[in-house]
């Protein structure tokens, strides 16, 4: 019988639709490819990197860009390219951990606060205003200075500065979806409040959250590099883009330009890529763009 035919046809049609919409935004798609490449390089760093990133070579100190060392070497003769590849592990994982934690806390509390409304909502939003009124970077500096700058604390500091943004975002979305008819429907069938909030309503708030989180990945990475640059982030022996930029910056006057240029470029390209992907996702998930094929 031919009854099953439509079912088998819908899948390829759906996939090609997604593909067409991705192709409408080649810049974001390119950025996504860049991020995937960076992540792969970080995961397979021991295979990809040509040298041991921490192995000093006194004979090869301050070597400029060459075939042997495509990004030159530092004052100890360590290969810059290998260090940049290994540094991606730290940078990406800290940025990811910080963002994930901030998203989780922001989404859970934002959802509860937004659904509850009333004075709870008021108090929470004034707290958020207070935190947001404080410069985020200064706050992150203060937290790492107070807690000590271990990798965990850096992630924690960055995530704390980001929580208010997610909280406000999800709270706003919750105010919208809690008035939807499916919220009423969930109430009329006897769901307890926590099920209504987390199972029925929160999934409907996710698209803007995904966009915000992607954009914030870039910002988290930048904050972390900046903290490391001023010595309040990751500590020097560890290969990290901010640390390397700081070390390289000290050599500008003596002409070793490759030492700060390449880590700086790594930061810039990665942050830019996350921002472009975030922008692309925003268009991709925008319901108003759904009809356009």
């Amino acid at each position: 019988m031919t009854i099953a035919a439509p079912a088998t046809q819908t899948k390829p049609a759906g996939r090609s639709l997604v593909w067409r919409r991705i192709r409408r935004n080649p810049l974001s798609f390119g950025a996504l490819c860049v991020i995937v490449l960076i992540i792969l390089a970080a995961i397979f760093a021991p295979i990809v990197a040509p040298y041991d990133p921490d192995m000093p070579d006194a004979m090869a100190a301050f070597e400029s860009v060459s075939w042997k060392h495509p990004m030159g070497t530092d004052m100890y003769g360590r290969d810059q390219l290998s260090r940049i590849i290994f540094a991606a592990r730290v940078d990406l994982s800290v940025a990811f951990a910080a963002t994930a934690l901030a998203v989780a806390i922001g989404a859970i509390f934002g959802a509860m606060v937004g659904y509850a409304g009333g004075w709870i909502d008021n108090v929470a939003m004034r707290l958020v205003d207070a935190v947001m009124a404080f410069p985020a970077f200064v706050l992150a500096m203060g937290i790492t200075a107070a807690l000590g700058n271990s990798t965990t604390n850096v992630a924690l500091a960055i995530s704390i500065t980001q929580v208010p943004a997610y909280l406000r975002l999800i709270r706003g979305e919750m105010l919208r979806v809690r008035e939807m008819e499916y919220a009423d429907a969930a109430r009329t069938v006897g769901n307890p409040p926590w099920r209504i909030v987390f199972i029925h309503l929160l999934p409907n708030c996710l698209p803007p959250l995904i966009v915000q989180a992607t954009l914030a990945m870039g910002f988290a990475l930048l904050t972390m590099a900046a903290l490391s640059f001023i010595g309040l982030g990751i500590k020097p022996p560890q290969a990290e883009w901010g640390v390397m930029t700081a070390e390289g910056a000290a050599q500008i006057v003596t002409g070793e330009w490759w030492l700060f240029l390449f880590p700086g470029l790594a930061i810039m390209i990665t942050v830019l890529a996350f921002n472009l992907v975030g922008d692309g996702l925003r268009d991709f998930l925008d319901p108003r763009m759904r009809g356009i094929r």
Binding site: M180, Y182, D184, R187
Partner: peptide, 18 residues
């Protein structure tokens, strides 16, 4: 609610969770 008294809403499409 739901078990003893159930309700059907006037706009089925929006009453179903998207």
């Amino acid at each position: 609610r739901g078990a003893k008294i159930a309700m059907i809403s006037q706009s089925p499409r929006t009453a179903l969770n998207p």
